[in-house]
Design a protein around this nucleic acid. Structure first.
Lengths: 338, 338
DNA sequence: TTGTAAGCGTTATCAA
DNA sequence: TTGATAACGCTTACAA
């Protein structure tokens, strides 16, 4: 019962050679449809699954995708937005027979670079969930032979799947002008080493005038989270430039802003309105529910997985491009149409 | 440069036999301290790392831990509480040289049971993050030769690391009696198929009288989340039994309750007080910040990892036990001392 | 079209 | 204490 099934036992059972079985499993070489079908049938019946270690050892393919969840950015599995993209990536990849393995900068006792780690683990490809585009080690990896894809970082030579951040801010600006009919707008953002944040800030800076808006403040903080939003908003409020609406570059930040506004005794949306970015699960549960730009986390994760796997499997040095996923404005209660 | 370092190249470089290198790496057999140190040194210098596939192939050990994140319970990586425990588990395990691999019920095209999957993947052990203790397949796995550990499910023959749920509710009850000086208490909980919920409900039912409390309502809902809490609280409020304080069996539920109370026009903590369970990151950010029973997610995850790994490595059929991690009451603004 | 056999990088058993 | 050698289960030339 605990006897392991191998291509040898199968070959024996069927009166064939192990090599033939292998070819069939991998869809290679010439085998008569007759034997092919017989073998496939048999395999399914007895529930045979190839030993991944043997396969890896021999073929140099590991069916493993390394995941970089940049540590210095202090983003862990707890970060709802990214872990949800990752979840979708994972689902897709698993369906294609790949496993994920988190890349850490050491292995056993040894400290090592991302690239070394990948070499040693022989991952087939790398998914960079978030990354610092100035990180030398990351760039070393990106520019190596190992296929990489990212859902945040934009650098030369890297295929990335990213939300249409410009469109997101455009939506917000249009909405502010046409629906909210407001003038004075501020923005609070996370750091520009995240490309997504940078794009949002850039679009804002370059276009608010087009919508006849006035920029009262722009705070670029050094964090991603609630506390960052809170502190930045306190700072902003104390400057008394009196923005009518604040655009936050993430929902976590937006939620912190909301709290700060309350703590300062103002009301949302009557005194100040707020627009977030992401649409995390909690956005709709907050009081008041957050108006925000929704990113399509499912598409983001799945497309990234799809593209990475196709890089890996058709190892033609694929066209690396920036693929852009549309976003959408979700109107809730932190804004008020006039 | 792309030449792979193996125990062969090392042996050659050092004028030794491959077998000797292997022994040293694995700390086995008799090797003179002299050669041992020389080899260890050399290995560190050139940054050699054993090929895991070769090792797996030969030794039957995969250094991989399967993770079950029960799907039918609709809990994904997005669930902050569980993913944070998992994160801590992961950190510990990785440090010990293990990798995590999520168990899915199929592999490639084939549907398969948890147990079959584990057999095929040859995982060294299994970590059940959350599980339904009535799930036949799960029980099959638990009762197999494969070492398992859980941080939620309690069944015969399963080692589990779990918060002291009884103590948590005890803390809440004491606090209600002695500090809040309240009488009428209600509870809203998730389903009893999660052992943690069951324990909390049981302790509450069996002990509220001891604290001279009056139970106005007990709602056992079928979900875990915000919406569950919201709907249950609306239901409860509409019954007009007027509890003075509501104990929620999770923070997500508590937050939903808070929202429902607001929506019905009541004030927290003046009209009704609320106590949660978990202390998720968001609990302190909510308005008002949630009083709750904090679970020690770090200890939970790390202890589970530690115990599993020791099961695996000292494959003595280890004492399976329930290990219990203390909890703590965090007082914030949804309660008010009298 | 099918079979044979040489690795892949380890571990483990014996022999030296 | 150290060295040689046979697996482990697969892939892939190459031979039949």
């Amino acid at each position: 019962m605990d006897k392991r099934i191998t291509i040898y036992t199968i070959a024996e059972d069927l009166g064939l050679a192990p090599g033939t079985i292998s070819k069939i499993i991998n869809n290679k070489g010439n085998v008569s449809t007759e034997t092919r079908e017989a073998v496939l049938d048999y395999i399914k019946r007895i529930g045979y699954v190839p030993s991944s270690s043997a396969r890896m050892l021999k073929s140099k393919r590991t069916y493993t995708i390394g995941v970089i969840f940049s540590e210095d950015m202090k983003i862990g599995l707890e970060q709802a937005f990214f872990s949800s993209i990752l979840q979708n990536f994972k689902n897709y990849a698993e369906n294609k027979g790949y496993e994920l393995s988190f890349i850490v900068r050491k292995l056993g006792k040894n400290k090592m670079s991302y690239y070394e780690w990948c070499l040693n683990k022989r991952v087939d490809g790398v998914y960079i969930v978030v990354g610092d585009y100035q990180d030398k080690e990351l760039l070393e990896l990106v520019n190596s032979k190992i296929p990489c894809v990212s859902t945040d970082m934009i650098v030369d030579n890297l295929h990335t799947v990213i939300s249409d951040n410009a469109q997101g801010i455009k939506l917000a600006l249009e909405y502010i002008k046409n629906e909210l009919k407001l003038k004075k707008v501020a923005m609070i953002s996370g750091p520009t080493r995240s490309k997504a944040f940078k794009e949002r800030i850039d679009y804002f800076n370059n276009n608010y005038k087009k919508y006849e808006l006035e920029k009262t403040d722009l705070i670029i903080a050094d964090g991603f989270g609630f506390t960052t939003g809170y502190n930045s908003a306190i700072e902003l409020l104390d400057k008394n430039n009196n923005p009518e609406v604040i655009i936050a570059s993430s929902d976590d930040i937006a939620l912190g802003i909301l709290k700060a506004i309350f703590d300062r005794g103002f009301n949302v949306p009557d005194d100040i309105q707020v627009i977030g970015f992401d649409d995390i699960a909690f956005a709709k549960h907050f009081t008041p529910p957050l108006t925000t730009i929704r990113q399509d986390r499912k598409k983001l994760g799945e497309r990234a997985a799809k593209d990475l796997i196709s890089h890996i499997e058709n190892d033609i040095f694929h066209s690396k491009e920036i693929v852009t996923i549309p976003v959408e404005l979700i109107e809730r209660k932190t804004t008020k149409k006039k």
